[in-house]
Design a protein around this nucleic acid. Structure first.
Lengths: 207, 207
DNA sequence: ATAAATTAATTAAATAATTCACAAATTAAG
DNA sequence: CTTAATTTGTGAATTATTTAATTAATTTAT
C-alpha cells in the first residue's frame, strides 16, 4: 500500500470510523462489513472501503473486517496511542469539562497540565496541575505538539507564544479568528460555527 | 447567481468568513479585498470570491467588498439572525460554559432553556432555566429546530426523543456515535476527533 | 475626460474526491 | 472438492471543487 497521500476528506472521516468502531466493539460486535458500517455512519460503503484501503489491506473479501483489527490499525498507523502530551490553555468551565473527561489516555494521549491567567484557578496539586500562564515557557512538557485553547483574553498573544514554543496543532475553542504560521494547524471546535453551518444548510440554497 | 446549489465545502467556510469579518469590523475596517481576506483566513482569494459569488454579486470590481455588506448578506441570506430558539441538553460543566457565553443572540439565536437529568442541576429561575429532562416534551419551545447535546448518559435515547420532537439539527458534544433519521443533521463538535485529526495529519502518510 | 491600475466575476482548465463496475479472494454449502 | 454466494480492493469513469486565465467594471491620477 504505497505512499499515496491520504486525501484530506478521508482524514476527516477517520475519527468518525474510529468512534463508530469503538462503539461496535463495546456492543460485542467482532466483525463488520463495509455495508453495515455504511448504514451506521451514513457514508457510502465504497467510500469507506477506499478510505480504509489507504491504511493497508485490512479486510477479507467475502467476509468483511475484524473490528479489533481496524481499531488496532488506527492506533498503530495513525499514532492515536502515541501518547501525545497535550496542554490546556484556560481552566474555566470549559477547561474543567475537558480535564474531567477521563478517557483521554485511552483515546489520544493526555492533558499533562493546564495554564490560566487567573490566580484563583491555579492549583499545582491537581492530578492535572494548573499553572499561571506566565510559566508557560518553563512548564511546557518536552515534545508537546498539541494545545487546546479555551482562553478568552489575549487569544492571539497566546497563540503567538504557542507557535514560538513549537506547538504543531491547536484545537481552538475560542470564538475569535486566530492567525498562525503556515506550519501550525488549527482545528476550530466552535459551537457557534457548528450552529451556523446547520442553519446555513437548512436555510441556504433553496430560494 | 441562480440556484446553483452551494458546495458543501463552501458552506463550511462561511462561518470562517463571518467570524473574520466581524473581527475586521470590530477593528474599524470598513472595506476589504479578497486578497486581504485571503491573508487573514488562509484561503486562496479566488476561492473566497467564488464562495461569495454564490450569495450574489457582492463586491465592486476595482474596489473590493464592504465589510458591512458582507455581514449583512450573511445575516439575510443565511438566516444567521433568524433568532433560532436553541435548547441545551445537559447542564454540566460544558453546558454551563455554553450558557455563560453571552453573545448568542448577537450571533445566531439564543439558548432558550436547558434540560438535565440530575435534579441538582435543575433551576427554573435562571435566566436560562434548567428543567428536568422528563419535561423535555412539554417545555420545548415552539419552532425549535436546533439542539445542543452535552449529556453523558442515554445519549441515543435522548437523540431519539429530539428527532421525534422535530429537531432538525443537533450539535453533538458527546463522545459517542449517534444515529439520526435522514432529515436530521448532526455536527459533531468533538475535541477528541479534532485532536485525532491533528495527529492523523501530522503522523499519517509519510511512512 | 482619459488612461492606467486595480479588483471582482466568470469562463475554462486542472485537481481532488467519489462512485461505478468488476476481478480476485474468501467463505459456506452441498 | 466444487460451486454458489459474498464482499473486498481497485482501475476507470464521474462528479465536485479549486485554481488559473480572462473579461469587465470601478477607481484614481493626470
Amino acid at each position: 500500500m504505497e505512499n499515496k497521500s491520504v486525501p484530506k476528506a478521508t482524514l476527516q472521516r477517520y475519527p468518525i470510523y474510529l468512534k463508530a468502531l469503538r462503539q461496535l466493539k463495546s456492543l460485542g460486535i467482532e466483525r463488520v462489513m463495509s455495508s453495515e458500517l455504511s448504514d451506521y455512519v451514513q457514508i457510502k460503503s465504497t467510500t469507506i472501503r477506499r478510505d480504509l484501503s489507504f491504511l493497508g489491506t485490512l479486510g477479507k473479501q467475502g467476509f468483511g473486517y475484524e473490528v479489533d483489527d481496524l481499531i488496532e490499525i488506527f492506533n498503530e498507523k495513525l499514532g492515536v496511542d502515541f501518547d501525545e502530551k497535550i496542554i490546556l490553555l484556560g481552566a474555566g468551565n470549559l477547561g474543567q469539562a475537558l480535564m474531567n473527561y477521563n478517557r483521554w489516555s485511552y483515546i489520544v494521549g493526555e492533558i499533562v497540565c493546564a495554564f490560566d491567567i487567573d490566580e484563583k484557578k491555579v492549583n499545582r496539586d491537581y492530578s492535572i496541575p494548573v499553572y499561571p500562564l506566565d510559566e508557560l515557557e518553563e512548564r511546557i512538557p518536552e515534545g508537546c505538539r498539541i494545545a487546546i485553547l479555551t482562553v478568552s483574553k489575549d487569544v492571539q498573544k497566546t497563540v503567538n507564544r504557542l507557535a514560538k514554543l513549537g506547538i504543531r496543532g491547536i484545537v481552538d475553542f475560542t470564538h475569535e479568528h486566530i492567525i498562525v504560521p503556515k506550519d501550525v494547524t488549527v482545528k476550530a471546535v466552535d459551537v457557534v460555527s457548528a450552529i451556523q453551518e446547520l442553519v446555513f444548510e437548512t436555510n441556504a440554497i433553496n430560494e
